Amino acid sequence: MEGRVLRWLRPMMMICSRRAAEARSRISEAPAERVLQFSREKLTLIDVRGEDEYAQGHIAGAVNLPLDQLAERIKGELPDKGALVVCYCNGGNRGALAADALQQIGFSNVINLAGGLRSVPESLRPDGS
């Protein structure tokens, strides 16, 4: 059983990585040190990981909008398409896909946190996750 799951999972991960690489060519990315210097009043942090991942630790003040729910929930959460938005996930791929999707629906000031939550040094993690 495990072998079948791995045979299915590996190609899916490659597809996600390829789509994220394509998305990165269309979006802006910034390292954690730069992103976390922005005034919190001037940006919205969107954690696009699943609810279980978010519950295990996230950047303080981040809104959890899982990637698979982003399109249907974003209008209610962030009506201003000109607002500064920073998307992040665990490693950067889902964040890149989310930033690209937001740009495609008209958001004009979107950044992906390069490297995702894993790239945020412990000393810069506001919630200590």
Rank of each mutant, 00 (worst) to 15 (best):
G50Q: 14
G57F: 03
V63H: 04
E2C: 05
V120S: 08
R125Q: 14
K75Q: 11
Q56L: 15
R24P: 03
G61D: 00
G92Q: 08
S17A: 10
A114I: 03
V5Q: 10
V35Y: 02
P79Y: 01
G82R: 10
L124A: 13
E122F: 08
A21L: 09
L113V: 07
M14L: 12
C89Y: 07
M12G: 07
Q103M: 14
A32C: 07
E22D: 12
S129Y: 07
P121H: 10
L6T: 08
V85D: 01
R24M: 12
V120R: 10
M14P: 00
L78C: 12
S25Q: 15
D100W: 11
N112H: 07
L78Q: 15
R94Y: 02
E51R: 14
G57Q: 04
M14T: 03
A101N: 04
R49A: 03
A21T: 11
E41T: 06
Q56C: 11
G57M: 05
D47I: 04
E51D: 10
M14A: 10
R118P: 00
G61N: 02
G61F: 00
G91R: 12
M12V: 09
L6H: 03
A71R: 11
G57P: 03
F38G: 00
G116L: 09
I15V: 14
R18Y: 11
S129A: 15
Q56K: 15
I27H: 13
E77Y: 04
V120P: 04
E51M: 09
L43S: 01
G61Q: 04
I74R: 05
A101P: 02
F38H: 12
Q37D: 09
R40A: 12
R7Y: 04
V5G: 03
L102C: 08
C89P: 06
G106C: 07
S17T: 05
N112P: 10
I15S: 06
M13L: 14
P11Q: 11
G128L: 04
L9P: 00
R40N: 09
S25M: 12
D52R: 14
A23R: 05
G76P: 03
R4A: 15
S123E: 15
R73Q: 15
V85R: 01
P66E: 13
V85Q: 00
G50L: 05
L102W: 03
E29S: 15
Q69S: 12
I46Q: 03
L97Y: 10
E41N: 15
G106L: 06
S119C: 10
I111F: 14
V5I: 14
A98M: 06
L6M: 08
S129C: 07
F38P: 01
E2P: 00
G3E: 15
R18A: 09
R73V: 03
R26W: 05
A98K: 08
V63R: 07
K81I: 03
M14G: 01
L117R: 02
A32I: 07
R24F: 05
A23Q: 05
P11M: 08
A114W: 01
D80H: 02
S123P: 01
R19V: 09
L65G: 04
I111T: 15
L102I: 01
N112M: 09
Q104N: 13
L102E: 07
L78M: 09
E53Y: 09
K81M: 11
E122K: 13
